[in-house]
């Protein structure tokens, strides 16, 4: 077993520097790497590029880095829930690259899988395709999209072990699984770090080879963005 375990978030984020590109898992606030985000705020790294489907809300998730003006550029598919984001974008302080959600996921997966680029039909004929190579396959037009290049991927899983194996829960898997192994260093934080051998190899979502550092996360808030319920009768 190759041991990926580090003792805490400080060790896990060793080497993080100004100007780097980070991938951060999560959809809305579901499955975001809460511990890594708090530490990035504490480290106060500046001018970073963040690849994340969303930008958090004003006072949680990536919104915390935005409030602190640490982000130079965001690459996301949907940023609707964050006023500070909209303000910084419209004023030109923040550079934003809006990317179709499936393309965003595939740009992560391509980086993970060693593909330099891929063709997708998403965005053809729209401003997303401007300046990009397009090509006809069997009478349908596609846009060439390059894989992402990132320094760190910060992901959050439900359970993991020191070998770096990960298991996700519910829809918290989202981009987390696709970002593993898609950056130079993948840092996984888990709700429960279990002894090696406890996870059933048949049930592992991400094999440890895609993870360089893993640590037991703490104090998860797991905030719900849109609590929606029905009443009994």
């Amino acid at each position: 077993m190759i041991n990926k375990k580090v003792n805490n978030v400080e060790e896990a984020l060793n080497g993080v520097k100004d100007g780097m590109t980070f991938m951060l898992g999560g959809f809305g606030l579901c499955g975001i790497p809460e511990n890594a985000i708090s530490e990035l705020v504490k480290l106060n790294v500046r001018d970073v590029t963040c690849i994340s489907n969303n930008a958090g809300v004003d006072d949680f998730g990536l919104g915390l880095l935005l409030q602190n003006k640490q982000i130079k550029k965001m690459i996301s598919s949907y940023v609707g829930e964050n006023d500070e984001f909209e303000r910084q974008m419209l004023s030109g302080e923040l550079e934003v690259e809006l990317t179709p959600q499936g393309t965003l996921a595939e740009k992560c997966r391509a980086a993970q899988a060693g593909f330099p680029a891929f063709y997708t039909p998403a965005g053809f004929g729209t401003e997303v395709a401007e300046g990009k190579e397009t090509r006809d396959f069997d009478g349908k037009m596609y846009v060439l999209e390059p894989a992402f290049k990132a320094d760190f991927a910060f992901v959050k899983a439900w359970k993991g072990d020191a070998a770096g194996n990960l298991v996700f829960k519910g829809t918290a898997r989202n981009f987390n699984a696709n970002m593993c192994g898609a950056a130079k260093i993948t840092v996984a934080e888990v709700e429960e770090l279990v002894p090696v051998g406890e996870l059933d190899p048949n049930q592992i979502h991400i094999p440890g080879i895609f993870v360089q550092r893993i640590f037991q996360g703490k104090n998860y808030e797991k905030r719900i963005e849109q609590r929606t319920v029905r009443q009994k009768n």
Binding site: F27, G28, L29, C30, G31, E81, W158, K169, G170, T171, A172, K222, R223, I224, E225, Q226, R227, T228, V229, R230, Q231, K232
Partner: peptide, 21 residues
């Protein structure tokens, strides 16, 4: 499925509108 009953919502199970399901 439908929205959860009050008290049974799970932060890890949402739809694309970020609603608990």
């Amino acid at each position: 499925g439908p929205f959860p009953f009050d008290g049974e919502e799970d932060a890890d199970i949402i739809n694309a509108g970020k609603q608990t399901i």
